[in-house]
């Protein structure tokens, strides 16, 4: 009996999706390497990639978990902004000017408050989806409008800026040459990956995504699981909010809005089934690296960031098309 359990799936076998992504990645590295050579593969541009990838990366993790459960979370950006604004308000109003105990405590409190607020938003999403049985798209679309509305209402569309040094360091500093934001992304991606493949909750999540009713009949509290899904998604979004806030040294109701649909793109490109039940963090990471590589290379080639956007969309269509053609001809 070969490969038993979900464990070997994550380690021993790469699976067809990841193989295809690695192939694409290698092809891109070769093409861009020939075109750009040292201009792309040097410390500076690798560092800039490492600074840029985590924002989209963490948001994509926040999108991935609801996608696996057969849903979707359109409110992640709004959640990230709302919690960043809450944190920013505490940081700009409560933190004393000089280092000391209160100086540290208020900064920690600010971040905790932001995370808790995001968890509450996520819980509301989850409760509406699980107990009122409203479709996830509509629930989170409404929640997005509502909380973005709250952010705009409270700030009048303005910007909160000027944070203490440690916060700015989170966004722009590094440890032994590795950007803090990348460390944060890795520190989230690994446990999320382990949770999805090895924890009972991760198993339930996949089963739930494929067939909610059968999962419920198997003695799983699927409603509770769904609420957890959206809390997790909210909290992850809030971490992305911290990263964005720290990088820009400011917070606003409309930061990162263009990321929303791109996170879905990244997740689906990474092999996460849009109808739920299947997908791995490793696939998502490969997809993110591919997207980031395209973005950085195009930037070096002096193409506009909008061409990057177009190519990102085209990549998904292309990968889907190749998959479809293979299915067609292998039959």
């Amino acid at each position: 009996m070969s490969a038993l359990g979900p464990f070997n799936r994550a380690t021993a076998r790469l699976g067809p999706v990841n193989r295809r992504l690695i192939l694409l990645l290698v092809a891109l590295v070769i093409v861009f390497g020939l075109l750009l050579g040292h201009r792309l593969f040097n410390a500076a541009s690798l560092r800039s990639m490492a600074y840029q990838l985590p924002e989209l990366g963490i948001l994509s993790l926040a999108m991935m978990i609801p996608l696996l459960s057969g849903g979707l979370d359109l409110s992640i950006i709004a959640t990230a902004d709302l919690s960043a604004l809450a944190m920013a308000w505490i940081l700009t109003h409560m933190v004393p000017a000089h280092p000391g105990f209160a100086w540290v405590a208020w900064q920690v409190a600010a971040i905790v408050a932001g995370l808790v607020l995001a968890a509450i938003v996520g819980m509301l999403n989850g409760l509406i989806i699980a107990y009122l049985e409203v479709s996830p798209i509509l629930t989170t679309l409404g929640m997005m409008t509502l909380i973005k509305g709250i952010s705009i209402g409270l700030t009048h569309g303005g910007v909160l800026s000027g944070f203490p040094a440690p916060i700015v360091f989170i966004g722009n500093g590094d440890l032994w040459g590795v950007p803090i934001v990348l460390l944060i992304f890795v520190a989230l991606a690994i446990p999320v990956g382990i949770m999805l493949t090895r924890s009972p909750f991760g198993q339930v999540l996949n089963m739930l995504g494929s067939n909610e009713a059968a999962t419920r009949y198997s003695g799983v509290d699927t409603r509770r699981a769904l609420v957890k899904v959206y809390i997790l998604s909210g909290v992850l979004a809030s971490v992305a909010g911290v990263v964005m806030m720290a990088r820009f040294n400011s917070a606003n109701a409309a930061y990162g809005e263009s990321y929303l649909l791109v996170t879905i793109l990244a997740a689906v490109l990474g092999g996460i089934s849009p109808s739920g039940g299947f997908g791995k963090v490793t696939g998502l990471v490969f997809a993110l690296v591919i997207l980031q590589l395209i973005s950085t290379a195009f930037n070096l080639l002096n193409f506009s960031q909008f061409l990057t956007l177009a190519i990102w969309g085209a990549t998904l269509i292309l990968v889907a098309g190749v998959t479809r053609l293979r299915e067609h001809f292998l039959r």
Binding site: P6, N206, N211, A213, A214
Partner: peptide
């Protein structure tokens, strides 16, 4: 539709 989750592995 209620007994099994057809798309998922036998082991799961």
């Amino acid at each position: 539709s209620l007994g099994l989750i057809m798309e998922q592995p036998i082991s799961s």
